[in-house]
Design a protein around this nucleic acid. Structure first.
Lengths: 247, 247
DNA sequence: CGACTATTTGACGCCAGTCAACACCGGTGG
DNA sequence: CCACCGGTGTTGACTGGCGTCAAATAGTCG
């Protein structure tokens, strides 16, 4: 299990937000104080099940988690991939119950933030509230790009795009670099995230490897030709809104 | 062009929100006062182009609009369909520039709300702010369901699902009923919304017609067998969060 | 070493895409 | 009133990208 603390999770969140606007030390402190409890989940576990009323939101402190839904025939669709510093179900503060599941891809450590504390933040810290709001609309932007990927991009392109996005998001919280980063997903997870089958994901990964663009082995992505990967993915990071603006 | 007023748009928004929580007359008034200007756009026009910095948000007063992105090869993906009462780019308040385009499907009338006024709302009306926040996370929930549709549902199922969702959303704002509602989209629009081609959309519509589930002609949907349509779509409206809760 | 899970590869099938022709419909102008 | 026209919808024949099925290989943990 990870050995990070709530402070590490909040730090990752702050890094992510600071790429978009200034966050004061006081605001970071408010966030840290909002974390009530820390929990661990093993890889593969479902951390939150859809439909259950919730009164806390979940900050991912360490590990990789996903939001997903299942269909009756057992097919699964991953709707967003989350990394440390992501407030996985902050939207649950408004929704009161989730419409999807949240699963641990790798071993995960999470911090629980009671909605009562979030409510107090909305009443007392307007700017911080807006930044939390921002983080939910950023998630939505990422999900919209996923709609484009799955709806219109080819299989190779979808995988390339997913890799570009995750590489960039991980860099923002100080994990990995432009050429190499950890990705603890199975090929079947990638399939569920891209709307493909694991067999076809495997074929596309081979293609990307054969064409010397990138390698994905043993939970690590190595990018050999970022330029070409970006071109194949039609990756345009605008939707990640990496710009410091007063928000 | 439509002949509705800003008040009609705000009323639709209030109806939509009141299906999820109580909204006071005072709060509705604040919303109405936030609308600065009303504009019309003809069907097919692009109302907001991605990338341009924005300082107002757009309330759809009348008509049908979509968020969409294009790929280099000219393919288009519609990411969400909007109806009267939808705050089409409320998230632009936080994002400062949009990462997608907003287009008018039918003739549209919109109300412009300056971000300065939204900011004041976040500082003075916490509950209303949370409801606006809610409406952005509701959009995100709808977009997540779209990811599931496009990623894992069959072609017929995607179209059936889209129809079920729109029927329900329109009912909430008092348009149409459970058996019949207006849908001013072309088959090619449906294709762009479902990640299919217009030819295949046509075939699936024929199938739904032949099996006496629903008809879509001349901009109107008539549902003949709601039960069966829901089953084909695997439509579960939980994700629309139609429950009054203190938020 | 053995059991299990994940990855890899090949052969084959099908759902949806492509291409193309034709029908329909409302609008416009002679 | 009809000829024409552009946009949209409809249909058929054919193609192809990705899915399915299945078996072999590699990696992991006891």
């Amino acid at each position: 299990m990870p050995n990070s603390s709530a402070a590490d999770g909040v730090r990752a969140l702050a890094m992510k937000l600071r790429a978009r606007d200034a966050i004061g030390a006081d605001e970071e402190k408010v966030l840290l104080e909002a974390v009530d409890e820390v929990r661990d989940y093993g890889a593969g576990r479902v951390m939150i099940r859809h439909g259950t009323p919730i009164e806390v939101s979940t900050l991912l402190i360490d590990g990789m988690a996903v939001r997903f839904k299942d269909l009756a025939n057992g097919e699964r669709q991953i709707q967003e991939i989350h990394i440390a510093g992501d407030f996985v179900d902050l939207h649950g503060f408004l929704l009161k119950r989730l419409d999807h599941n949240i699963g641990a891809i790798s071993n995960c450590r999470i911090g629980l933030v009671p909605h009562a504390k979030l409510k107090r933040i909305t009443e007392e810290y307007p700017h911080l509230s807006r930044m939390l709001w921002f983080s939910t609309v950023l998630d939505a932007a990422i999900q919209r790009e996923t709609i484009l990927s799955i709806g219109r991009r080819s299989a190779v392109s979808r995988i390339a795009h997913l890799v570009c996005e995750l590489g960039l998001r991980l860099q923002l919280i100080g994990v990995g670099d432009a050429r190499r980063f950890p990705l603890p997903m199975k090929q079947s997870d990638l399939a569920d995230a891209t709307g493909l089958t694991s067999v076809h994901v495997n074929r596309m990964l081979k293609q990307l490897r054969d064409e010397a663009m990138m390698t994905f082995q043993k939970g690590e992505v190595v990018i050999h030709d970022w330029e070409r990967l970006v071109r194949v993915a039609e990756f345009d990071p605008t939707y990640l809104h990496i710009e410091r603006e007063p928000r």
